[in-house]
Simulated scan of single mutants.
Amino acid sequence: MGRTNLYIHYDAVTNHVMTRAINFEIQDFPKHYFPQNIILAESTLDFGRFDPQTNFKLIRGASEIQVYFESAHKEKMRISNWIDFETLEDMHGLTAQEIAEILYLFHANKALKSAFFYKLQNNYVYLTLPNGLNKVYYRHVQHFYPRFQRAMVVHMSELLNESRSLFFMRKAKVQALPLEIAEQVAPIFVNGLKVNFQQAYVKGSRHFVPLDIVEDELTLLTLDQAPKNHIGFIIYDSNAEKWSLELTLDRD
C-alpha cells in the first residue's frame, strides 16, 4: 500500500475543517457530544424514518446513529451528509426559510448564513465533497483534534510497518499522538496543511514526516516539494515510543 498525504484546511470564519485522507469514526466524538439525533441528506434504505412534518429523513437516538456509522464503515458505504439536532420538538420549530437553508447546505456544501441553527442546537454538519474531500462544520473546532490524532497514529503505523514482513516480523505499535502536539500544529491548519507522508524519511529510530503549506492547491497534495519549503516535521521515535514536533521559526 502506498503512502498517503493528509490534508487539513480550517476556515476560522465559518468554523469548518476540510480534510482529505482523514476518515470519520465514532471514537472521534467527545463522549458528551455524540449526536443524539441526525437529519440525513439522503434516504438510506435500512436506516432512519421520514418525519411527516418536515419530510426529513431522521435517525433518532445515539444507539441507532452508532449502528448507522458502524455499518457504513464496515460495508465501506458513503455516509450521507448529515446535521445533528437535540430535540424533535425544537426541530419542528424550523421555519420554511431555515429548512431551505439546511437543504441548500446539504446540496451546495456551504452555508447561506451559518451552519449552526439555534433551534437545532447542532454541533456538527458533515459533508462529503468530490475528489475525496470531507468537510465538517464544528461548533467547537477542538472536536477535530481527536480525528487528527487518530489519523496520525494510523498513517504513522503504516509508515513504520511498510517494510516489515507480514508473517515473520512483529508489527510496530504506535503510541497515541499527544493532544499538546495537535494543539501546537492546529494554528497551521488555517494555511492549508499537507502532512507529507510520501516524503517521510528515517534517521535511526526517528521517523520524520514533513509539514508543507499548500493552501487550497490540491494538486500539490501528491507532488513532492523541495525540502527547503518544509515548515517543520512531526517526528515519531520508535525506540522511545515518543512523538515530537519541530517547526521552522522564521516562517509566518
Rank of each mutant, 00 (worst) to 15 (best):
K203N: 10
K119I: 02
Y201L: 02
F167S: 06
Q142C: 02
F167R: 06
D90S: 06
E180L: 12
Q121G: 13
F197Y: 11
K173H: 13
R164V: 08
S165F: 02
Q184M: 12
F148S: 01
E183S: 09
A111Y: 00
N161A: 09
L133P: 01
F167M: 07
Y118K: 10
A172L: 11
A186Q: 07
N109R: 09
F167N: 09
Q198T: 15
P187K: 00
E183W: 04
E183R: 12
L159N: 05
V136Q: 01
L103A: 04
N123T: 03
Y126S: 09
F197C: 05
L112Q: 15
K110G: 00
N161T: 12
H140F: 12
R206S: 14
G132M: 03
Y138R: 03
K135E: 01
M91N: 09
S157Y: 03
R139T: 13
K171E: 12
N191I: 00
A100L: 03
H107F: 11
H155M: 04
Y104I: 02
E101K: 08
K113V: 04
E183T: 10
N109F: 07
G132S: 03
P146M: 08
P130Q: 10
K113S: 01
H140E: 12
L159S: 07
Y126W: 11
F116A: 06
L94C: 11
M91C: 14
V153G: 02
L159Q: 12
Q142F: 07
F197K: 03
I102Y: 11
K110H: 04
A115W: 01
E162Y: 08
A111R: 04
G93F: 02
F189Y: 14
A200F: 04
L179M: 13
E183H: 06
V202C: 07
F197A: 04
Q175P: 00
A108N: 10
L166D: 14
R170N: 09
L193C: 09
Y124L: 08
T95S: 15
E98Y: 01
Y138A: 05
A108R: 13
N122T: 12
V202L: 14
L177M: 07
K171N: 08
A151W: 06
D90E: 08
L105D: 04
P187S: 03
I188G: 02
H92R: 15
R164K: 15
Q149D: 08
R139Y: 15
V190R: 15
F197R: 03
S165K: 10
F117E: 01
G132P: 06
N131E: 11
